[in-house]
Design a protein around this nucleic acid. Structure first.
Length: 775
DNA sequence: GAGCACTGC
């Protein structure tokens, strides 16, 4: 995937052709000469330093000014930055990248950041910096040489010998790519490149399957999940002097948990860190930090000190102004309005300037693409052409790449039809016009029903602002909202954080495993409904992770150490018992089940589908999807000649299959360490022997230990009715069980879209359910 | 007969 957002860089000058002359667009003749050089932020001399200011003025883009301003307790100390003498941190001196660093908006603020962070005790600093401000790469570099960031030799409670606290700065990212690319960028800037053969370096990173932390590293980028895992071993984060939480505005479940644990460390027992304070720096790309300030500002931990301070620093970004245009009245047909808008932009707006349209999902994208292509053929030969390119997560990498390439022929306007993927995950270059349909599909968990829904819902203001911002990356842009200004005003300020949209089962286990007895009083920025937490506690008890008194069991502790959901952890533990004895088989199945999206790709056309089905015959098993995944892994690893070709024939996603192999290796290693396996299995490739029906039954029965609540019985009318809740469910078409009638089924996922769907389905016997439930 | 986006010592 191209250009992850996290690698903040200056807007790039787009290569443009200097063809002079004019073109005819929609009957109007327009000189193109003036449009073929893209604008760039002005370089301004400020206090002897070159800094890049927003062009053409310092004014906020209109999409930002329309936002409700969050009240801030502390004034921004942006104005206090009078002394902007160039400071050269050691290592950056004379480095060619220093010039680029000096031009980042945040460079001006380094003294203030150092000053504020130095005096942080139980206080927290929140840095709001728009995309391009340079916060993710620069803040750790500003801080690591401060005296408080040294490793301290201290007395720790309950220990005879001295311990060590501090020395490193952790900086978290929601995504692996962000953590690794930022680490590479910062290590290059610092002059100590990462990589093998370089044991000593300043910068490291730690993400799943990939840990590159040089000895003596002072700055460590990690994913939020990795830091949460570290918290299991090191509950007081003793290796760190500071933790920088980046991209908190995304409000991932993990970041919300981290915020809670950080707050506990800040206000908890200081002796556990030998009196060395932990500096907490929170960074957000959006201005809606009121809840964050409130969370850290009111120390709600009972019996603790007075409310602490939250310093707020705002850094401007490098964003061109974006003009927002609304519909005068609500549109009746979104898809129709979208197409008309795209055609209107194409006819009226200058080139170059590609269009990025945000749609609900794949279905809408495909139909819009067809209609734009029809329109394109109707255009006269002397007007600029238009091409439509889809962009969504399920597309292959090659297909996604097309969306990032400029149109092949000159005077062609590219329309990228994207899902939310283009809102945060990737940046499409060349975009000057955004069309925003105002909706997005959101997955939401219903704790009472124990099921998820995936439905199109109105986006938030924050999301709308983010979408609009995509038009202002390379020059002044326009954003066409396919809704009224009143509709915008009625949108929620920000999206529901994940912790309120997800099953909190894993979150509750995480807390329990990290010593939180009373999870209902754990500090959270947004607390889920108590009922949702209670459901999770009951579910964990059923899985054997919690004892009757609510304390965590050894099994629960082990489940929390595995990079698996709690139910899958329970499955793995069941598999290691003498009753089933099928750990390796269960690992193979789990590896495929958890490697991102489905390893089986969907085939569009009917003929292609038939061909793929014929190739898939050898891996598909009538026991259902679990045994099919297991067989796939066994055949894949037995394949000795050409695995690539083997996958291609069966339309198996190679990237996900490789990921599955990584997971398999990790799980095998962990099972060995946790003594769920007595010896390391023989290396691949091993000859393939089809799984016996008895073994298949054992594997499925293990899964029932984790998923007994996700079962359904065949009703007389041929439908399936869930054992819990008595809902009618249909077997999803992606399942090998689709269209089959068995006396009972077990499913690993339960999603409501057009219908109530059961996914990842296996055939079971009714008696097995009672057996699994009645233990 | 169908899938917003991420992610884990």
């Amino acid at each position: 995937m191209a250009a992850p957002n996290a690698a903040e860089h200056a807007p790039k000058r787009r290569k443009t052709r200097q063809d002079s002359g004019s073109v005819t667009i929609g009957g109007k003749t327009i000189s193109v000469a003036g449009y073929l050089t893209s604008a760039r932020p002005k370089q301004v001399e400020a206090n002897g330093l070159k800094s890049t200011l927003q062009a053409p003025s310092q004014e906020q883009p209109s999409n930002v000014t329309s936002q409700p301003q969050q009240s801030t307790k502390k004034p921004s100390f942006e104005s206090s930055g009078t002394n902007n003498k160039s400071r050269n941190p050691r290592g950056a001196k004379d480095h060619p990248l220093l010039k680029a660093r000096r031009e980042l908006p945040i460079w001006q603020h380094q003294d203030e950041i150092r000053t504020v962070v130095k005096r942080l005790g139980t206080d927290v600093i929140v840095i709001v910096g728009e995309t391009g401000s340079g916060k993710s790469t620069q803040v750790p570099q500003f801080l690591y040489q401060e005296s408080w960031c040294k490793r301290h030799k201290v007395k720790l409670p309950g220990r005879e010998e001295d311990g060590y606290v501090g020395g490193m700065i952790a900086i978290t990212q929601p995504r692996r790519v962000a953590a690794t690319t930022l680490a590479h960028r910062v290590s290059t800037e610092a002059g100590t490149p990462l990589g093998k053969g370089r044991p000593d370096g300043l910068v490291g990173y730690s993400v799943r399957f990939d840990h590159q932390v040089p000895r003596g590293a002072r700055i460590k980028f990690l994913t939020e999940g990795t830091l949460l895992q570290e918290l299991l071993r090191d509950p007081y984060l003793r290796q760190y002097s500071a933790v920088v939480i980046d991209e908190i505005h995304e409000r991932s479940l993990d970041v919300d948990l981290l915020a809670g644990f950080l707050k506990q460390i800040l206000f908890g027992d200081k002796t556990q860190r030998g009196g060395v304070p932990l500096k907490v720096i929170i960074m957000s790309a959006t201005a809606e930090v009121g809840v964050i300030q409130e969370f850290f500002g009111n120390a709600a931990i009972p019996g603790k000190e007075k409310a602490s301070n939250v310093e707020l620093l705002r850094i401007r970004g490098r964003q061109f102004p974006v003009t927002i245009l609304y519909e005068p009245r609500p549109v009746a047909d979104l898809q129709d309005a979208l197409l008309k808008k795209i055609f209107k932009i194409h006819v009226e707006e200058p080139l170059p300037g590609d269009i990025l349209a945000f749609l609900n999902g794949q279905e809408d994208i495909e139909s819009a693409q067809r209609l734009i292509e029809e329109y394109a053929t109707s255009l006269a030969s002397n007007v600029p052409k238009i091409i439509a390119v889809p962009l969504y997560g399920q597309l292959s990498i090659e297909a996604q790449r097309v969306a990032f390439l400029p149109a092949k022929s000159p005077l062609t306007r590219k329309v990228v039809l994207a899902t939310n993927i283009a809102e945060t995950s990737v940046t499409v270059p060349g975009v000057r016009y955004v069309v925003d349909c105002g909706k997005a599909k959101v997955k939401q968990y219903r704790p009472r029903l124990g099921m998820e829904s995936l439905l199109a819902k109105p986006i938030s203001k924050s999301s709308a602002v983010q979408r609009a911002g995509r038009a202002g990356r390379e020059g002044p842009g326009k954003c066409f909202r396919l809704y009224t200004e009143d509709a915008f005003d009625s949108l929620e300020d920000s999206d529901l954080p994940e912790i309120l949209r997800n099953d909190v089962l894993g979150a509750v286990l995480t807390m329990k495993a990290r010593g939180i007895q009373d999870v209902l009083s754990f500090p959270l920025i947004d607390a889920p409904e108590p009922a949702a937490i209670e459901m999770a506690l009951l579910h964990l008890h059923f899985l054997g992770a919690l004892a009757d008194d609510g304390t965590i069991t050894p099994a629960g502790e082990m489940m929390a150490r595995f990079p698996l959901s709690a139910p899958l952890g329970a499955v793995l533990l069941a598999a290691s018992g003498p009753e089933f004895d099928c750990v390796l088989e269960v690992i193979d199945a789990i590896s495929c089940l958890t490697s991102g999206d489905d390893i089986f790709m969907h085939v569009q056309s009917e003929e292609a589908a038939e061909e793929v089905e014929s190739y898939r015959k050898d891996i598909q098993r009538r026991e259902g999807d679990i045994i099919t995944y297991l067989t796939t892994m066994q055949m894949y690893t037995a394949e000795n000649s050409d695995r690539m070709e083997w996958c291609k024939k069966r339309k198996i996603n190679i990237r996900n299959m490789k990921q599955a192999l990584n997971i398999r290796r990790q799980l095998r290693g962990m099972c060995l360490k946790e003594k769920l396996l007595s010896e390391m299995p023989a290396p691949d490739p091993q000859p393939f022997t089809p799984l016996s029906p008895e073994k298949a039954e054992s594997v499925i029965k293990c899964f029932l230990r984790g998923f007994a609540m996700r079962t359904a019985m065949l009703a007389p009318d041929g439908s399936f009715v869930t054992v819990h809740g008595k809902h009618v469910v249909a077997i999803h078409p992606s399942s090998v069980m689709h269209g089959q009638k068995k006396e009972a089924i077990m499913f690993l996922e339960h999603v409501y879209t057009n219908k109530n769907y059961a996914k990842k389905v296996s055939a079971i016997q009714a008696a097995w359910i009672a057996e699994a439930l009645g233990r």
